[in-house]
Design a protein around this nucleic acid. Structure first.
Length: 594
DNA sequence: GCCGTTTTCGGCCCGACTGTTTTCAGTCG
């Protein structure tokens, strides 16, 4: 099968898939094991890349990608120049194209896919037809007729394929959604202190990723079988999907699943570390341990000379044994944290308690806004802020509809400003008069320039035309940033988690402009957005660009979303000084005048 | 095929689970 691409129209996922196809081809041909690993590693990197790989290629920067060395670089270069690679085509040529579709189904690997396509007739194109063919073969009980498969494998394949087709297979939940399921269950477990000493979330949930694949919880106990039994007493318990003596998967009445694992106290630290991940962090950790003569697993750390297995009841001691500073879960992605932990030089991360205010709040004051109005009054917002021990809030209602006459707008703004002053005085609380203004497709602002003086500062954001090219979007944003009073670029990539991919833009270029103009970029803390994405937070930290966290609250209770913004900031290695929410009011006022 | 404060050669994470090929292969996280 000659594999052709349009170099102008190929994304990172497709390139990652191609490299996995190469790995699969080597697997089928019993090629060298470490070549297979190398291609898969390169695919992993490219899949998680934050810049389009074609963009890196244009700038001759492919060798900046870890796990892409001289050989893969050469093949990719040919692919991007000519639309295909001779070497890849040679490798893929004699393998049925359906193999590379079938391996996308979790649970089906190269060998299985190869056997299937050799024994049965599969369509060459159409992902849907290929998967349906597999389902139909299983239903006709044909798969169990070939060597290596019996009824059970056949059943399993049919199930995997059906799940893939229905897209009910691993759907990722929002972090907030997963916590709403996990936290009440943990409270339930902790009510039984005689049985359970501690219960914590694991995996991507503990590392605070914006979306998580499953809800894993660890319980520290000496009576694992009793803990497994206890689950059935949980008020929202529906059934056990699996239940062993040490672990269980339970289904709740609302359909969510929870994976529970148990561990005795003396090795709880190792288990916690292992199941927190990430996979890449753990691999790097084990490689490093091996150099020092230790083998790491969820059971502990084994000294390869003495064969002694060391147990750890907590993570601090686990990392210490390996000569490392304890690493906050949000950093465990193998992005350089291990090297810094080795020198005890991990950055100080921002903490929820460092936050002194919220930069993005919508009130119910009606200025005939272009987008949705808030639902809470100013007073309630200030009461909430005081409960959160804040020192300030920025009131950032949406700009009025464009159709409204300029002097009508001015009248509304002045009326709003009087109310803000009144509430501020009444509660002795600092309120900034701000506005969230749309950036028009041409980069102009959706409000008259002469009205900007009525505000302490302006937040700008893209709310329309997300489909522009990267360079047009970059120009659009940079033009908007040049207006007076503009201090913050809100929800910068426009992504809505699980719904809309963020748009692409030349972020390094935009960051440079923001830094030069003493502006800031927002980490939108809404659990539906979490925008800036963490890798761009990291870029902001590296290049010295300041950030604000704003909840984008449309009701007082939404102000509790701040924690999501803080976690996202921590995932991007941000410290207190990178985030303007930690600044004193005097410092803020000085910054606003810059 | 990738990578480097013990290496430009010689290494490359670890264990669980599942199903089937009674000793292992495939897949996953």
């Amino acid at each position: 099968m000659p594999f052709k691409i349009d170099p102008k129209n190929v994304d990172n996922q497709q390139i990652a898939w191609l490299l996995r196809a190469i790995a699969a081809a080597y697997t089928i041909k019993n090629g060298p094991y470490f070549k297979i690993v190398a291609y898969n590693n390169a695919a992993d990197e490219i899949e998680h890349l934050t810049t389009p790989i074609t963009y890196l290629w244009q700038q001759n920067r492919l060798d900046e990608i870890p796990n892409v060395g001289q050989h893969i670089k050469k093949h990719l270069d040919e692919l991007f120049r000519t639309g295909q690679s001779k070497h890849f085509n040679r490798l893929l040529g004699d393998i049925h194209p359906a193999v590379f579709i079938l391996i996308k189904v979790p649970g089906i690997g190269a060998k299985t896919a190869d056997k299937l396509t050799k024994h049965f007739k599969f369509p060459k194109k159409s992902e849907e037809k290929i998967i349906k063919t597999l389902i139909s073969l299983a239903k006709q009980a044909k798969i169990q007729q070939i060597a290596g498969f019996k009824a059970k494998s056949q059943e399993r394949l049919a199930k995997l394929a059906a799940e893939y087709l229905a897209d009910i297979s691993p759907k990722r939940f929002l972090l907030s959604e997963a916590l709403e399921v996990a936290e009440p269950f943990i409270s339930f477990l902790q009510q039984h202190q005689d049985l359970i000493k501690e219960a914590v979330v694991l995996g991507s949930l503990r590392r605070r990723l914006p979306t998580v694949g499953d809800i894993d919880i660890a319980a520290k106990t000496n009576k694992p079988d009793q803990v497994v039994k206890l689950c059935s007493k949980y008020p929202f318990f529906k059934e056990y999907e699996t239940a062993g003596s040490n672990k269980a998967r339970i289904v709740l009445t609302n359909g969510y699943r929870i994976d529970l694992v148990t561990s005795p106290a003396f090795k709880f630290g190792s288990l916690l570390q292992h199941l927190t991940g990430s996979k890449f962090h753990n691999i790097a950790l084990r490689e490093r341990a091996l150099e020092k003569g230790y083998s790491v697993s969820e059971h502990g750390i084994k000294d390869l000379r003495t064969k002694k297995l060391h147990h750890f009841d907590n993570e601090v001691d686990f990392y210490k044994f390996l000569g490392l500073q304890w690493i906050p879960p949000e950093l465990r992605e193998n992005k350089g944290e291990i090297e810094l932990a080795e020198r005890f030089k991990l950055p100080q991360l921002i903490d929820k308690n460092d936050v002194l205010g919220d930069f993005h709040i919508h009130s119910d004051f009606d200025i005939s806004t272009s987008h949705d109005l808030g639902r809470s009054g100013l007073k309630d917002l200030v009461i909430k802020a005081k409960n959160l021990k804040y020192h300030f809030l920025a009131v950032t209602d949406h700009n009025p509809k464009k159709a409204l006459a300029s002097d009508q707008k001015a009248g509304l703004f002045k009326k709003r400003n009087r109310l803000i002053d009144k509430v501020s005085q009444q509660f002795d609380f600092c309120l900034f008069k701000s506005l969230e203004v749309d950036i028009n497709p041409d980069g102009s602002l959706a409000i008259e320039k002469n009205l900007l003086d009525l505000f302490d500062f302006i937040i700008v954001a893209v709310h329309s035309r997300f489909d522009m090219s990267s360079s047009a979007m970059t120009d659009r944003i940079i033009k908007a940033l040049a207006y007076p009073k503009v201090k913050i670029l809100a929800h910068p990539t426009g992504r809505i988690l699980n719904k809309r991919k963020g748009f692409e833009a030349d972020w390094p270029k935009i960051f440079k402009v923001i830094k030069k103009r003493s502006q800031a970029i927002e980490i939108n803390a809404s659990p539906y957005r979490l925008d800036l994405p963490d890798d761009l937070v990291r870029l902001a930290v590296k290049t010295g660009v300041k950030m604000t966290i704003g909840t984008d609250a449309h009701a007082d209770k939404d102000m509790d979303w701040m924690k999501f913004g803080v976690w996202n900031a921590r995932r991007g290695w941000a410290g207190p000084d990178d985030i303007i929410n930690t600044w004193s009011i005097e410092k803020l006022k000085k910054w606003l005048k810059k």
